[in-house]
C-alpha cells in the first residue's frame, strides 16, 4: 500500500471506493418525489382518472348518448350517482367519458407542443445566429396574436373533431416550451461537457440528442405537466362557448355549459363537471410542483 502508483496496476485503483453510491439522477428524483405528499396524492388522483377514462371506453353505467335514461334535472341519487341533466342523461357516465376527452386533449396537445417546442428550441439555442433570429421572431409573433382568436379560426377552418381541437390548442401553446428549451440549450451548450463532446468530434445531432436534450428533460417534463391543465382548461372553455368537441361527445366544459341555464334549479349539472375539472387541474399543478422540486438539480447537496 501507499507506494506511488503511476499508471495503476490492477491492485491499486484509486477509484476502488466510490465517493457516494447512488443510482441514476432519475431514480434520485423519483425518491424525492415520493416524499412529497401532495404530489403523491395528485399522482393517485390522476391515475384514477386514467383508469376511469379507460373503463369508460368499454363500459358506462348508462349509455351516454341516450336521452331520458332517467328524469330530467334529477339530483344525485342511488340510481344516478351524480344525477341527470336537462335531457335526462346520466351525468356520471358522461363525466367518465369527459375524463377521456380531457386527458386526450391535455396529453395530446402537450405531445405536439413538446415535439414542436423541443425541435425549434434546440435548433435556435444551439445554432443561434440567423436561425435563432427567425425562430425568436416567429415565437414573438405567435405571442402577439390572441390565442382564442387563433383557436377559433383553426376550429372554424378545420372542424370540430377531437384531433383538430388538439391541434388548434397546441398551435396556441407551443411557444412557452420553445422558449424554455431554447434557454436551456443556450445555457447547456456553454457547459464544459458539451465543449468536451465537440472536442472529441461529436456531431451536432448527437450533441443535441445525447448531451443537451437529456439534461434539459427535467424542466421540459415540468413545463409539459403544467401545460396539460392549461390545455384542458382551454378546451373546456372552447366547449363552454360551444366551439369544443362535437356533441354528443361529452366534454366537461360542454357539460357545464349545458347546465348553466338551470344553475338555480339543478346546480349539480354545473358543479359536477366543474369540480372534476378543478380537481384535475389542481392535481396536475401539484404534480408539476412536485416534479419541479424533485428534478431541480439545485436541490442536490
Amino acid at each position: 500500500m501507499a507506494t506511488a502508483p503511476g499508471v495503476a496496476t490492477p491492485e491499486e485503483y484509486v477509484g476502488d471506493t466510490l465517493a457516494r453510491e447512488q443510482t441514476s439522477l432519475w431514480a434520485d428524483a423519483w425518491r424525492r418525489l415520493r416524499r412529497n405528499r401532495l404530489a403523491l396524492v395528485s399522482t393517485f388522483i390522476l391515475l384514477l382518472l386514467v383508469v376511469v377514462a379507460i373503463v369508460s371506453a368499454f363500459w358506462t353505467p348508462f349509455p351516454i348518448w341516450r336521452q331520458s335514461v332517467g328524469p330530467t334535472y334529477d339530483p344525485p341519487s342511488l340510481h344516478h350517482l351524480l344525477g341527470t341533466d336537462q335531457r335526462g342523461r346520466d351525468i356520471f357516465s358522461r363525466l367518465m367519458v369527459g375524463a377521456q376527452v380531457s386527458l386526450q386533449v391535455g396529453v395530446g396537445t402537450q405531445i405536439i407542443v413538446a415535439a414542436l417546442g423541443i425541435t425549434v428550441g434546440l435548433l435556435a439555442g444551439y445554432f443561434r445566429g440567423w436561425l435563432d433570429g427567425i425562430i425568436s421572431t416567429i415565437i414573438n409573433i405567435f405571442y402577439g396574436i390572441p390565442d382564442l382568436l387563433v383557436a377559433l379560426i383553426l376550429v372554424l377552418l378545420l372542424g370540430r373533431g377531437l384531433d383538430k381541437i388538439i391541434f388548434a390548442i397546441a398551435v396556441t401553446r407551443w411557444m412557452d416550451m420553445a422558449r424554455l428549451v431554447r434557454g436551456q440549450t443556450f445555457a447547456l451548450r456553454e457547459r464544459e461537457f458539451v465543449e468536451a463532446a465537440r472536442a472529441s468530434g461529436t456531431r451536432p445531432n448527437k450533441i443535441l440528442s445525447r448531451h443537451i436534450l437529456p439534461n434539459a428533460l427535467g424542466p421540459i417534463i415540468v413545463q409539459a405537466t403544467f401545460g396539460v391543465p392549461q390545455a384542458i382548461l382551454f378546451e373546456a372553455f372552447l366547449s363552454f362557448l360551444g366551439l369544443g368537441v362535437q356533441p354528443p361527445t361529452p366534454s366537461w366544459g360542454a357539460m357545464a355549459a349545458d347546465g348553466f341555464h338551470a344553475l338555480r334549479i339543478a346546480p349539480h349539472i354545473v358543479l359536477v363537471p366543474a369540480i372534476a375539472l378543478s380537481l384535475t387541474l389542481m392535481a396536475f399543478n401539484f404534480l408539476g410542483d412536485g416534479l419541479r422540486d424533485a428534478l431541480d438539480p439545485r436541490q442536490k447537496r
Binding site: 500500500m1 501507499a2 506511488a4 502508483p5 491499486e12 484509486v14 471506493t17 465517493a19 457516494r20
Partner: peptide
C-alpha cells in the same frame, strides 16, 4: 521527478 501523493480519498 515525482510529487509525493496522498493516495485514496478523504473519508465519508
Amino acid at each position: 521527478d515525482r510529487l509525493l501523493s496522498i493516495e485514496g480519498l478523504p473519508p465519508d
